[in-house]
Amino acid sequence: MQITKLLTLSILITSLSACVSPSINNAPTSDKNTLSDADLIRIAKNDNRQPLPNTSKSVIGIHNGIDVVEEFTCSDICPENTLRIVYYDIKDSAECARGGGVIKTILIPVAITVMPKPYCLPAVIADYWESYP
């Protein structure tokens, strides 16, 4: 009985650790997950990307030495009204500019409305962000 419980617990812990282990969703296969400008454009244009299980955002690589995050935001009607944003993991606007980013204010779904939120987007996708899926 005790061995069965121990075995069951071991399997459960192994399964859970596999769920939370860091992984990259549809990330490029380049060296150390370094993203080129072309990689960022390809990721931004790809409307088939999905969030990792049990998370709404994840680091998908590094561009210009800065972590690039892909975030999926949804409010009242999911997944139909899900918004996907690819941005630098930078909060400060001065640091964003130094890293080659551009601050863009994006309307984020909240309940049945939207709210503006600033993001530091990589410059290569910032000018065309609204045209990507």
Rank of each mutant, 00 (worst) to 15 (best):
T4R: 12
K5C: 12
L7F: 14
L7P: 02
T8V: 04
T8W: 12
I11P: 00
I11Y: 07
I11V: 15
L12R: 07
L12Y: 07
S15G: 10
S15W: 00
S15I: 00
L16W: 02
L16E: 02
S17W: 04
C19F: 03
V20Y: 00
S21G: 10
P22D: 03
S23P: 00
I24Y: 15
N25P: 13
N25I: 11
N25D: 06
A27D: 08
A27R: 09
T29R: 15
S30N: 15
S30D: 15
D31F: 13
D31W: 10
D37C: 03
D37I: 06
A38T: 07
A38C: 05
D39C: 08
D39E: 09
L40M: 02
L40W: 01
I41R: 15
R42Q: 10
A44N: 06
K45G: 12
Q50P: 07
P51K: 04
N54D: 07
K57Y: 11
S58L: 05
S58R: 01
V59S: 14
G61K: 05
I62C: 12
H63S: 09
N64I: 09
D67H: 15
D67T: 14
V68R: 01
V69S: 08
V69T: 13
E70Y: 04
F72D: 02
C74K: 06
S75W: 11
S75Q: 07
P79L: 07
E80A: 11
N81D: 14
N81Y: 08
T82Y: 02
I85Y: 02
Y88I: 01
I90W: 01
I90M: 04
I90C: 02
I90Y: 01
D92C: 07
D92V: 04
A94P: 00
A94N: 09
E95Q: 09
E95D: 12
C96R: 00
C96N: 02
C96E: 02
A97T: 03
R98P: 02
G99I: 00
G99C: 10
G100N: 12
G100R: 06
G100I: 05
G101Y: 03
G101R: 01
G101Q: 03
I106Y: 12
I106G: 13
P109G: 11
V110I: 15
V110E: 15
A111W: 09
A111L: 09
A111M: 06
A111F: 08
I112W: 13
T113H: 13
V114T: 15
V114F: 14
P116N: 06
P116H: 09
P116W: 08
K117R: 14
P118F: 00
C120W: 00
C120M: 04
L121T: 04
P122F: 11
A123V: 04
V124I: 15
V124T: 10
A126K: 00
E130A: 12
S131R: 07
S131I: 02
Y132A: 12
Y132Q: 03
Y132H: 07
P133C: 11
